[in-house]
Amino acid sequence: MSSSAGQQQIKTLKVLGEDVWKNKVEKINSELFTLTYGTIVSQLCQDYDRDFEKINDELYKMGYNIGVRIIEDFLARTALPRCTDFNTTSEVISKVAFKVFLNLTPTIANWSQSNDAFSLIISDNPLSDFVELPIDAMKSLWYSNVYCGVLKGALEMVQLDCDVSFVSDILRGDNQTELRIKLNKVLKDEIPVIED
């Protein structure tokens, strides 16, 4: 589906992502990030008594709260306008957003027939460096569920109502870490209410 103009656009986005990462982003040791996230998850396990469904929800909510704010930070750094189609959105998320915040470039795969859903395959997830899940968590915990919340919140602020969820996770013994993003609808911009 990608024409040469599309390829050019992808390249521009990639260059933009790398440029912003190199020059406009203050960086911090990724292991501190990993360790902090680890204590958050283990504190949640304690607080919710190992009810992993609740923990997944809580991580999602935390991610959502991060997402609605991180989008402003993202736009301030990259000055990107709203995307014209979902294809472009996927490229922006993968090549710019993940690169600017996590220094990752997940691969885009598994486009649905109607072009409204795609998967992100994350290799080398910084949150799960040196993490090993216990057996009971392996069955129901999505360790990096915070990513789903962040993407949902951020996309909602640019008027894209999406469902984001994990499909597979290396920590659970699967082959790869895969995130699925499905567009439900494009939210309409509000218009002022007409008073009499």
Partner: peptide, 20 residues
Amino acid sequence: FSLRSITDKISSDPVDFLSQ
């Protein structure tokens, strides 16, 4: 708001989204 909606309708579609 009004001026914005008018200019949106007048201008042609951009080639790629980066040219705003």
